[in-house]
Amino acid sequence: MLKRRFICTDTTIGILSAIYDAWKMDRTDTEAGIPLWGTVQHEMFCEYYEVEENERKAGAVRKLIRERLGKQAYSDISYAILSKDEDKGTAILQTMVAARELADSHRIMEHLSHPAVRRVFEMSRNVGREAHYWEEFLRFREMKPKILYAEITPQNQVLPAIADHFADRFPLEDFVIYDKNHASYMIHPRQKKWMFMTDHEQKWEAAKELSEEEEAWCTLWKGFRKSISIKDRENKKLQTQNMPLRYRGDMPEYGKS
């Protein structure tokens, strides 16, 4: 029998739609895979399908996962979809296939000796960790009309994973977070629902001018960071271990000014 491959774009809707198609064709197929456009490796004895992606299919799969696999698996899978790894679609699909074999499919994420489940677990953990790092190390600057603006450079697409955290934290602020690596924005207008935007849709014109007070607060912060450190205990290595260099790019405390 030919192996089935469902090709989709590297987006949440794309991957969920591919799962929809694969599931519809044969939900017991342990050989089916979901490669992403641009990374497809042509194999022999494979049938390729181009996935038609839409919100209806994605919604149906979301509902299926939530109902059949439960909350824990749903949150793990939502994180895994944001992963930088190319095998994410396949791993999620195979996790769902494996769950059908269990008496209690809600416990699928505990089945860590299954290779696909383990991959989903690893990817979810990796995305979760990176998202947590950005919650820690992201820095806002206040721009001219009192807008807070931050830039991040994550490896995984963490923006959806951190959006709720910041929206809950700053309900009364106008703020924007820009993911440089994936060219997408999270825009949060004061007291309104936040939204995503990609560079393709619309170039968001950030007010590039800092507010008058910004410099002063930044200086206060730098001073605080310096005076809070204990000279006798200095340990740069530990500092780097806890705060890896790649997160420091946009921190004002490491900035030039």
Binding site: F137, H165, R169, I230, K236, L238, M243, E253
Partner: peptide
Amino acid sequence: IGNCKAAGICHSFSADGR
């Protein structure tokens, strides 16, 4: 303004690694 997370969040590390 603000919320709390049970796990806690570190925002920076000083030169002594704390």
